[in-house]
């Protein structure tokens, strides 16, 4: 819909958009700035915005106290690995639901979504005990498995919506051309769905990156991702804002970079289906 807008209205909307964007972005900016302050400057009243003694000592101290790279590595392995495995399961599942639906497909989809509404604490104890008995506590495999299961309904749902948009004729043409089911999915469906798959993966990776409940409860050291790294800055010594900010900046930096370079995919992914 191309609506004619008066210039005044357009300026107004633009300003409002920037304002909202700034409000949302401000906490991140503030964290980033604080990470370069001394602890004293960090709690100074009135707050110092840009004019303070810029220092890297927080980063040095954070690195000294805890091994950032190990946590970051775990985060990357967990969020990318878990969702990649999830994707391998979700593509055939979404194919079946989109192109060969049965009577109960809609119910199945709703049921999968409903698992997302269940409070996680409800199953914490059984899962914890299972993990303990299977020796999966604090292991990348165990946590990766849980993260994969957490996102699977979302990945299947998103792929399902994308696949529904693909004309079934094209897949049937591939079948007529002698493609096996695997080839049909590999050479025809997947390449056509690349934008959808990319934005789905991006969203899923961000969700896993931010997942704190299970990672904090099931991992203590070896398999602990950046959520544990951040959490370790809250407790015993009281709050050290500047160091906490430095740790936070480090924790969100990788995902922020990933998000920055894939904005377009992300926006398309998040608004998909909303506007047609």
């Amino acid at each position: 819909m191309a609506m004619k807008q008066s210039p005044a209205k357009r300026v107004g909307v633009t300003v409002a958009a920037w304002l909202v964007a700034f409000l949302i972005f401000f906490p991140i900016l503030w964290t980033f700035l604080t990470s370069f302050k001394s602890e004293l400057d960090a709690i100074a009243m009135p707050p110092k915005f840009l004019f303070f003694n810029w220092t890297l000592e927080n980063y040095a101290e954070v690195q000294e106290r805890s091994n950032y790279l190990k946590y970051a590595f775990n985060s990357i392995v967990l969020s990318v690995g878990a969702n990649f495995v999830g994707l391998l399961i979700a593509v055939p599942a979404a194919w079946a639901m989109a192109f060969a639906p049965g009577k109960r497909t809609k119910d199945l989809l709703m049921w999968m979504l409903s698992t997302k509404m269940m409070p996680a604490v409800g199953v914490l104890v059984p899962i914890y005990l299972l993990f303990r008995d299977l020796g999966l506590l604090d292991s990348l495999w165990g946590i990766g498995f849980v993260l994969m299961l957490l996102n699977l309904p979302i990945i299947i749902w998103m792929l399902y919506t994308y696949f529904k948009e693909i004309p079934v004729d094209i897949l049937e043409a591939a079948r007529m051309d002698g493609a096996s089911l695997l080839n049909e999915i590999l050479y025809v469906l997947t390449p056509m769905a690349v934008p959808g798959i990319a934005s789905t993966m991006l969203l899923a990776i961000i969700l896993s990156w931010n997942e704190a409940f299970w990672t904090l409860n099931l991992a203590t050291s070896n398999a602990a991702p950046l959520t544990a790294f951040i959490a370790s800055y809250s407790a015993p010594e009281g709050f050290f804002w500047a160091k906490l900010s430095a740790a936070s900046t480090l924790a969100i930096a990788p995902i922020l970079v990933l998000g920055w370079f894939s904005q377009k995919q992300l926006v398309r992914g998040l608004t998909f289906g909303a506007v047609k």
């Binding site: 094209i170 043409a173 002698g178 056509m192």
Partner: peptide
């Protein structure tokens, strides 16, 4: 299955592989 019947089909929508 359709892949093994040895028939070729031309669809109303052409159904070309867009990529």
């Amino acid at each position: 299955g359709p892949a093994q019947r040895g028939l070729a089909m031309v669809f109303q929508s052409y159904a070309l592989y867009p990529h």
